[in-house]
Each structure stands twice: as structure tokens, then as C-alpha cells.
Design a binder for these strands. Structure first.
Lengths: 346, 346
DNA sequence: ATTTTTCATGGGAACGGTCCCAATATTTTG
DNA sequence: CAAAATATTGGGACCGTTCCCATGAAAAAT
């Protein structure tokens, strides 16, 4: 079946010249007569010629397209990182293809294979909460496709990445809770498999230690980041003989779901329990009371990840991270204090 | 430069058979000896063969990939539509490539050309608020690439689409405001260029008319969907000699931004002014007070759009919408009543 | 055992573009 | 004006896969 797309051969035939000349005219090669170039350009325009990127990528082994893989995008975190990535990549002449994993490991592997089968030049990744096996990532590396990770970075892999100081940020967040007089601080942690989840928990533990508050394992629960579990675990915390007077949540959706439970139980925030989230999701500023949280520079994270990927792509000699240390960029966070930790009228 | 990817020719050479046979073995063609097939499959696995979709799409004129173009994804509306699309498309064996326009017409045109240059088989679209020219859409149609629109559907084009009854939903929302005793109902409308914006406004007008409330043009402002403008226009409404006692906002982000203004001015919601949004964004249930809004079945919208696109793709004879009416699917909305229109304790 | 049928494999064109090299046209130079 | 240099064009290989057609091998039928 003949395609409806115009090809350079169609143009060449109409003008009675060779497809080589048409190709040269269209790609701006210097050695084409002005007269010829003009004719080609005009005909291409009227015939609505649309270059075939498949053919091009196929024959050139480079597609000028990069992929970005995110675990989910129902919070504003990943979308705004993506916008940052697109900014930089489009300015550099690259196309960006977005893949969304729905927090499913299988989808992640499938999407990786999809991107590789389309021969993207590089990939920016934040893996799912289920990911324990990293073969699909090393596969990309073996294929010479550079990866840059952000947010969720596997520590089993030596890869370029963009992160924030999760440990330090968590430490500060918990210190803030201590500074407003809280002592029984609970922590709803993420899955242990996520490095940033472990780091945030360690920040929590060390902040308590610094202020001579004994670490109480009963006040820490790791969970799978599903809203239902937040409800169960939060109820559990509130039903303790002596319930916590503060909560440090692994992220904003967790904190917000926890707030619902607290409010449903008729307790007051922050009077009875102060709450801190993480990432400064758009909704953190909208909930009542406003949620204190750790702001991450999401757009900047995306832009940096893109810059680092460009560096990999433009490297004359491919970086071999089996022998040298992969670069890492750490961006600053900022604790945003809202009413969930400091009552407006006090 | 030799690519690092394994090809079927590499496999063929190793096994001393022809690439045709390898191809047949890999694609599950019946006429291959079991013994041969097994050998090929094994070697393909150990050599980590990854089919080259560029070559395939290039030679077959079909990529089994569809695109989805959304104007933005900072609200939860478009992401959850996308998830619905992915559900259906992946089950049908299609890949989904996501493009995000940042509400920019230029980006929309660029993304359309990108998708066409990658020869996607079909595209699901919701256009930007800036889009006035639809040539890039008709171009796709001329190329035989079926389009299905949702949410923002240009009425200049006869295309398959998935919508909700914006008129009726708006009508009900405004009737609800009237039912709780409001008479001075303001409307922050979207750009006139958006069909659903016009429909919602008409619903607003007709609901007033039905209840014998004179239509007051001073209480209606069309705006460009930027947060800054909401602030200006909302302040304007509140500064009127007799300020409105209710607001019907074109969408939830508008409503929420308006709530901020109202609260900043020290007015009470819903006591002084009741507010209704549109789309039931995740944040509508989080803000204080909870925002009454029109829920759209976002996942279902995505799934339906995908189903309709599959129908186009599987049609033995391509549907020619220059001669016949394009199908449309209308899905139900539901008014979700929260505290922004009905005080909890009354 | 020979012919026919079926099964399994190989060979090569096609897809659309780029790019190298050769061929021709044009201009410059001696 | 011929020779050399340069500008412009054409020809064809190449990229990886599928698929059609031809060929060879094995199995079935006579």
C-alpha cells in the first residue's frame, strides 16, 4: 500500500532532478543552486512534505529524541519536572517522549523496551516504587543509551543523577517540629526499597537523636504509598495509648490523606497533631490547614537532568560508568512553613 | 558507526541461516521448524535482541503507536484522562506517546509535526486555549491519520470526539446556586475560542433565565485561564457596589484561585459568596472549604476516546468525515456538592 | 520408486532518507 | 582558448525488517 505521505522521491520526480539534490536542498546543504533550492522548497511546501523521522533515525542511528519515564503523574511533582525537561531539551533540538508507569514495574520494563525499540538517544528516569530489579536500566546502558536519574535513584547503579538532600531536608523538617515543642513525632515512611525513603527516615531518626528524644519504633511505619494504607496506619497512630503530637509524612499526598483521618476523628491540626509533608505539591498550599512541607525545585530538577543528559549525549567519548564515578547534582530544598505546624492565631 | 544493537542479521550469521528464517522465527510465523525456532529464540535472548521499531514502522507504514496531545497537565484532569487512554491502548497492543503543549499553539503545531514525522497511527487531542487555526489537524487527516478529540473540541472540524454535556452541567451547577437562594451569580468564563467555555456560559445564562433572574453582563468575565487574571477579575467582582453572592467558575483552578481572593478579603465561603467549579480536580476536595464542582468521568473519557480511535484504526474502509457525520460520545457529569455552596453546620 | 504435496528455508526487493563518490557543468585562471 | 579549479548534480550503497517468490527438503500419495 502506498503511503499518503510525500517523499523526497515524489518531489525529485516532479522537478526532474535526483533525490540527492532534493535531500541537499531540504537539509540546507551549501552546494545547491539557489534556483534549485527555491523550487524544491516551494514544491515541498505545496505538497506538504513531512520528513520521515523513522527512515531518518533508522539510517542515521540517532533519533534526536529522548524519553522521560516517571512512576506516576497524579501529583504535581513529576509533571513539573517534565516541563523543565521539555524546556531544555526542545531548546537543544530534541524531542521528548513521556512515559508513565502507573507505579508498575512491568509497565516500567515495557516502556523501557518501547523507548529502546524506538531508539531514543537517551532517557531520564525516576523508577517505580516496585522496582527491585534493574536489568532494564543496565540493558539501556549496554546499548549505549545514556540514562540520567532523578528523585528515585537506585543506589545499586552508578548513574548520573539529580537529587535533593533528602536526609538533610527531613532532618530540618523534624527539627522544625521539635522547635514548636513536639516530642512524640510519628513518621509515615515510604517503602524501604526507595533510597530517598530510607534517607528521609534516617534524617528523622537523627534529628530526634540530636535533641535527645528517644527513637520509638512504634511511631514509625513504612508503607506502600497507597491512600488506603495511610488511613489504616494513621488510625493506628491515633489509637495508641499516647497518640503522637506530630507527624512527619514521606510526601504530601501521604500528609494530606493523614490530615483527613485526623480531621475525621475531630482532632485539631496543629493543636493536637502537627503535620509536615514533603515536596510542596500544589495541593499542599490548598488544603486546610495549609501543609508545612519541604519544597523541591521541580522545574530546576527537570532542567538539570536534561542538561546532564545533553552532556552525556554530546560527550565525544562515551562516559563509561563501570570505571568512573557518575556525576550527581544536588539541588537545595526549602522548608515551607504553613498552618499545619504553626497555628495562624496563637 | 556500527550500532550496539543486535540485529536479525547478527543472529542469522551466528546460526548460519538466513535472516528471513530468523524473522519468521521471531514473529511467530508457522512455517519454521521447532528446532530452528528454539535456537533463534535462545540466541535472541542471550544476545538481548531488541527489535528495531524504526525499521519496522518504516517498512510497514504502521507503527502501532498512537499519540495523545494535551494542553497542560498541572491539574489532575488531563493526567487521569491519559491513564484511561493508556489502559485501553496498551491492552490493544498499541504504544502511547504523550505530548504536552504548555497551552502554547506553537508547541501544539510542533508536537503534531513530531508525531506525524514519527508516523503514529492515530492521535487523541485536546487543543490549547490559543488554538484558532486548525490546519495542523486537517493535515493529519489528509495523511490518513485518524484524530479523536476530547474536552476541547473545535466546532470548525467534523471529527470524532468524546465530550460531556457542558451546557447541561453548567445549567445544573447554576441551578444549584439558585436553589440555595443565590441571585447575584457571577461567572468567570474561559476564552470564547473554546467551545466548552461558550457552552458553559450559555448554560449559566439559560439557568438564570429559567428562574427569572435577569442576565447581568457585568457579572460575567471571559479570561485567559491564568491565575493572575483570576485575582484581578475576582477583586473586581468583589469591589462592585453590590458584590455577587455566588460564583460559577469555568474550572476548578479558577474556582480555587477565586477562593483565595475571597478569603484574603475576609469574606466567608459560602456565607458571603458561594462558589462552584468544574471538573472535580483532586484539589477540589482538599481546599477549605471543599469546592462544589461538576465531576467529569475522566478515566472513562480517556478510555472512550481510545476505543473510538481503535474503531477508526480498525475500520476496513477509512471513514471519510468530509462526507459523513463524525461520531460523538457524550458522557455523564455529576454535581458534587461540598461546603463551598452548602455550609456544613447550617 | 516416482510424483505430488507440504514444509522449511534462502534470496532479494522494498521502505525513505543521507552521504560518499563520480560525473558533469560552470567559472576562473594562465 | 585550453586547462584547472570549483560548483552542482546524479548514482547508488546503506540502515533493519518484512514479505513475496523461488528453491530445496521432507513427507505423503500414487
Amino acid at each position: 500500500m502506498k503511503s499518503k505521505y510525500t517523499t523526497i522521491i515524489d518531489i525529485a520526480k516532479q522537478l526532474n532532478i535526483s533525490k540527492s539534490t532534493v535531500s541537499r536542498a531540504l537539509t540546507g546543504h551549501p552546494n545547491v543552486k539557489e534556483h534549485t533550492r527555491k523550487a524544491v522548497m516551494e514544491l515541498a511546501s505545496t505538497m506538504e512534505y513531512q520528513r520521515n523521522s523513522l527512515a531518518l533515525g533508522f539510517s542515521k542511528h540517532t533519533t534526536h529524541t529522548v524519553g522521560i519515564m516517571v512512576p506516576e503523574f497524579m501529583s504535581t511533582y513529576f509533571p513539573s519536572v517534565i516541563v523543565g525537561v521539555q524546556d531544555v531539551m526542545q531548546a537543544a533540538g530534541y524531542n521528548v517522549v513521556i512515559c508513565q508507569q502507573n507505579e508498575s514495574y512491568e509497565t516500567e520494563v515495557a516502556n523501557m523496551k518501547l523507548l529502546l525499540s524506538y531508539r531514543v538517544d537517551g532517557i531520564i528516569v525516576s523508577h517505580t516504587k516496585e522496582t527491585r530489579n534493574f536489568d532494564h536500566f543496565t540493558l539501556a546502558q549496554r546499548r549505549g543509551v545514556p540514562l540520567v536519574f532523578f528523585n528515585r535513584v537506585p543506589d545499586e547503579l552508578n548513574v548520573p543523577n539529580v537529587i535533593v538532600n533528602d536526609y538533610e531536608a527531613a532532618f530540618q523538617a523534624v527539627e522544625h517540629l521539635i522547635s514548636i515543642g513536639r516530642r512524640r513525632i510519628a513518621h509515615l515512611a515510604g517503602p524501604d526499597a526507595l533510597v530517598n525513603s530510607r534517607l528521609r527516615r534516617q534524617g528523622y531518626i537523627d534529628a530526634l537523636k540530636k535533641h535527645d528524644i528517644p527513637y520509638n519504633p512504634d511511631l514509625v511505619l513504612s508503607y506502600d504509598l497507597t491512600t488506603e494504607k495511610v488511613k489504616i496506619y494513621m488510625k493506628h497512630f491515633l489509637d495508641l495509648g499516647t497518640p503522637p503530637d506530630a507527624l512527619f509524612a514521606i510526601n504530601d499526598p501521604t500528609a494530606i490523606a493523614a490530615m483527613e483521618v485526623v480531621k475525621a476523628k475531630g482532632l485539631r491540626i496543629p493543636h493536637d497533631i502537627a503535620i509536615v509533608g514533603f515536596s510542596n505539591d500544589l495541593s499542599a498550599g490548598l488544603v486546610y490547614p495549609g501543609l508545612t512541607t519541604v519544597a523541591q525545585p521541580t522545574g530546576e530538577i527537570g532542567r538539570m537532568a536534561a542538561e546532564m543528559l545533553l552532556q552525556e549525549l554530546n560527550a565525544k567519548v562515551k562516559n563509561d560508568y563501570s570505571i568512573k564515578k557518575a556525576p550527581t547534582t544536588q539541588l537545595p530544598t526549602k522548608l515551607i512553613i504553613r498552618e499545619s505546624t504553626v497555628a495562624k492565631t496563637n
